[in-house]
């Protein structure tokens, strides 16, 4: 990692086998993403946003090129090392929240810390802190079925943030939310980005998300067609 660069991508190519040939999902991607960025991968469906998010999130490997996340080369990690990277340093926010329905809010947020084998008192402290960040202290005993969509996504953010990861990856986080809840969620994430210097990377084509981005990386047909910093007033 140089000069606060958390992610370095050089000449990335990703192919998927299709029949006897292959489909090129990403081609010649070169990017660097630094600490505390609030960046978005923007583009239409099939442009390669989620594929790129997958590779950065160590859920998939590049076909060619080099992807370095937090000093680790994604292509050379085995399954266990990939899982360790995700477990310790990456947070994920999904479009459909994916909370575990039989566990309450506290327990859902606590899960990543259990995997880190953290002490009970420390876990409690961190979960309470994460719930405070997203404003859900009073819902800690509620089950996901008792929450609104916006609240569920805030729990999902708390789950991603509770272990204070360096990078949070969010795939279409507002796709299932109405405008008001979308803004609430995005404001929450923006606040966490500013206060904790956590890097957020979105995959989105939602204008509501795009207006919050500080950096917009546009993809089309698997290539970066534009990469612009957005100056906020």
């Amino acid at each position: 990692m140089k000069n606060g660069q958390l992610i370095t991508i050089k000449e990335l190519v990703k192919d998927y086998p299709v029949g006897k040939g292959y489909f090129r999902a990403l081609e010649d991607i070169n990017l660097t993403i630094g600490e505390g960025e609030f960046a978005g991968l923007v583009g239409p469906s099939g442009s390669g946003k989620t594929t790129l998010l997958n590779i950065v999130g160590s859920l998939d490997v590049p076909t060619k090129g080099e992807v370095n996340v937090l000093g680790q080369s994604i292509g050379s990690l085995n399954a266990r090392q990939s899982a360790n990277l995700r477990n310790h340093s990456l947070g994920f926010i999904f479009q459909t929240y994916n909370l575990l329905p039989v566990y309450n809010v506290f327990e859902n947020v606590e899960l990543p810390l259990l995997l880190l084998k953290m002490e009970k008192d420390k876990r409690r402290e961190l979960v309470d802190q994460a719930l405070e960040w997203v404003g859900l202290q009073d819902k800690r005993k509620s089950r996901p079925a008792q929450l609104s969509g916006g609240e569920c996504q805030r729990v999902s953010i708390a789950r991603a943030m509770v272990k204070s990861p360096k990078i949070v990856l969010a795939d279409e986080p507002t796709a299932n939310l109405d405008a008001k809840n979308s803004h609430n969620i995005l404001q929450t994430m923006e606040k966490l980005n500013q206060e904790l210097k956590t890097t957020f990377i979105f995959a989105t084509h939602d204008d509501k998300v795009i207006q919050y981005l500080h950096r917009k990386i546009s993809l089309d047909d698997g290539r970066v067609v534009n990469d612009e910093q957005i100056i906020k007033e």
Binding site: R80, A83, R86, N87, H88, G91, F94, N98, L115
Partner: peptide, 16 residues
């Protein structure tokens, strides 16, 4: 299916 997927995504090992 979803639960296992989330657990894999947040870094739980398959063996675990």
């Amino acid at each position: 299916y979803g639960e296992v997927g989330v657990r894999l995504a947040i870094g739980e090992h398959k063996r675990h």
